[in-house]
Computed example of a mutant assay.
Amino acid sequence: MFDTKVALIVRDDLATWQKLNVVAFLATGIAAAAPEAIGEPYIDAADVHYGRMLIQPMMIYGSGGDALRKVRQKALDREITIVPYVDAMFSTGNDEENRRVFREERVESMNLVGLAIRGPRNAVDKVVKGLLLHP
Rank of each mutant, 00 (worst) to 15 (best):
S91D: 14
R72T: 12
K126C: 05
M59T: 03
A24E: 06
A27D: 01
T16N: 06
E108C: 07
V71H: 12
R78S: 05
L133M: 03
Q18C: 14
K19P: 05
E108I: 10
R106F: 12
Y42V: 09
I55F: 04
M58K: 14
W17C: 07
Q73Y: 02
H134I: 07
R103G: 11
V124Q: 00
Y50E: 01
V48Y: 01
E79C: 06
I80Q: 07
A67T: 02
G93A: 15
V127D: 03
K74G: 07
V22H: 07
E96A: 12
V83D: 08
A46K: 09
T92E: 11
M89T: 13
I80K: 11
A32N: 09
R72Q: 14
L26N: 05
R100P: 08
Q73C: 02
E79D: 13
A24I: 05
K70Y: 03
Y61I: 01
L132T: 06
K129R: 13
N98T: 14
A116L: 04
V23I: 07
E97K: 13
T81P: 03
A67D: 03
L76C: 13
A88F: 11
Q18W: 13
V101E: 10
R121P: 00
K19V: 09
D95T: 15
L112V: 12
V86A: 13
Y61Q: 02
A123P: 01
I60E: 02
A24C: 08
P120R: 08
N122M: 05
A46R: 11
K129V: 05
M110L: 13
V71A: 11
R99M: 14
L68R: 11
G39V: 00
A67V: 02
A32T: 10
S63F: 10
R106P: 07
I80C: 08
Y42I: 08
M59S: 03
Q18D: 11
V71K: 09
E79Q: 13
R121T: 02
I80S: 08
W17T: 06
S91M: 15
S63W: 07
A67I: 00
Y85W: 14
E96C: 10
A37C: 02
V124D: 00
H49Q: 10
A37M: 05
Y42F: 10
D77H: 10
H49F: 04
Q18M: 13
D87S: 15
A27T: 07
K129N: 06
A88Y: 09
D47Y: 06
E36G: 08
I82R: 01
N94H: 14
R100M: 14
I82P: 00
K19Y: 06
S91V: 15
E79H: 11
R78N: 04
L76S: 12
R99C: 13
S91W: 14
I55V: 09
V124H: 00
V48R: 07
E79K: 08
E36R: 12
E36T: 06
T16A: 09
F102A: 15
L132C: 09
F102L: 14
R72A: 15
Y61E: 01
E79P: 04
A33D: 01
V127I: 11
D44F: 08
M53A: 07
R103K: 13
H49L: 08
